[in-house]
Structure formats: C-alpha cells, structure tokens
C-alpha cells in the first residue's frame, strides 16, 4: 500500500516536471519571436531616417504624373536601337590600315545588326566616305579597318554613320544615327 502511494507520488512529480518544462519552453520560444520582431521594426525605422525622411515622407503619395522612359514604350512595341558614340578617333598619318572601335552594343541582341560608315565632312554639308563595314552582330566590335586612302596629319571633322538593320529575313533598315567625331591624324 505504501509502495503504491510512493509510485503514484513519483508519477505525479514526473508529470508536473514535464508540464512545467513544456510551459517554460513555450515561453522561451515566444520571447525569441518577440525579440526578433522588435529588431525588425527598429531596422525599418533606421532605414527611413537614413534616407533623411525623418518621418516627413510618411503618408505622402506617389505622384502619378512621374514617368520613366521605360513607361512610354509598351512591352509589345519594338525596342529602341542602342548606338555607341565617341567624340574622337586617332589614327597614324599616311596609313590605310588603322585601329578604331566600332561597337554594336549587347543591348541590341536578337534585334539589330549595324553597319558603320566613316565619312569626312565639310562645311557645305557634303562628305567623302573612307570606310564602310559589313553587318556587325550585337556585342561585336570592329577594331581593324582599311581606309580608302591614307590621310595627311591634321584634325578632320568626321561622322560615323550607323545604320541598324532588323534581324529578319528582309534585313529591314530602321532609323539611323550620325555620330559626329573628330578624326585626329598624327
């Protein structure tokens, strides 16, 4: 009788310990969750203050009239053509084989080839073409070219005429660009 009483007492103690342990564990978990959420809130407050808002921007609305150029063109419309420009090219005098850097930007991938024409211009609006390339794929450069003639030392007004072509069977030409540049021969 006495032994049964002891066993019952031990079991009760065990259950009590287990219950207390579970309650304690749950309290710890809840405390950790609360600490984490408080830290997150504090971080947000610091970010807003770093931007100099000091709470002044809170409650303000996004201006619906503000636009970005990408807003103007819908995703279904034809993308624009990227054209690389440079203000000066330097080449050696008297040489027909020269080094340049005509580049069709990566941005035109799967859309546009480009051709490059180097023209010497004059004040009357006329020009002389001294180099014409073939089709250049997007991401590619033309570095070594052969001019139609070598040039004497001096600074020449020139234009790089860039003509894009769609990558379709017809190779349809698009709008184009004249990149004004100085050709420095020395």
């Amino acid at each position: 009788m006495k032994r049964e009483d002891n066993n019952q007492k031990n079991n009760t103690e065990k259950y009590t310990v287990i219950m207390l342990g579970s309650i304690l564990f749950m309290l710890c978990v809840m405390t950790i969750i609360m600490i984490i959420s408080m830290v997150c809130r504090c971080t947000n407050m610091i970010s807003v203050q770093d931007q100099g808002y000091n709470g002044g921007g809170v409650g303000m609305l996004i201006d619906p009239n503000a636009v970005d150029p990408s807003d103007v063109q819908s995703s279904d419309e034809e993308q624009g053509v990227a054209i690389s420009g440079i203000s000066a090219i330097t080449i050696p005098q008297g040489e027909k084989e020269v080094t340049v850097d005509f580049y069709n930007p990566d941005k035109n991938a799967d859309m546009y080839y480009q051709t490059f024409e180097l023209r010497l211009t004059d004040d009357s609006g006329g020009y002389e073409t001294i180099y014409t390339s073939g089709l250049v794929e997007p991401g590619k450069h033309i570095k070594h070219i052969t001019l139609s003639r070598g040039l004497e030392a001096g600074v020449y007004q020139a234009v790089i005429h860039v003509q894009p072509y769609r990558m379709n069977e017809e190779r349809t030409p698009t709008n184009n660009a004249d990149i004004k540049t100085e050709l420095i021969v020395k």
Binding site: E78, Q79, G80, V81, A82, I83, S84, G85, I86, S87, A88, P105, K107, M111, Y112, P164, R166, T174, N175, A177
Partner: peptide
C-alpha cells in the same frame, strides 16, 4: 579623356 556615350533611338514609328 575620351568622351563617349550610348544613345538609344526609336527604331521606327
């Protein structure tokens, strides 16, 4: 310093 840029023009309208 060499001056440079990338201009994106409308291909067509």
């Amino acid at each position: 310093m060499t001056e440079s840029y990338v201009v994106t023009i409308p291909a067509s309208v």
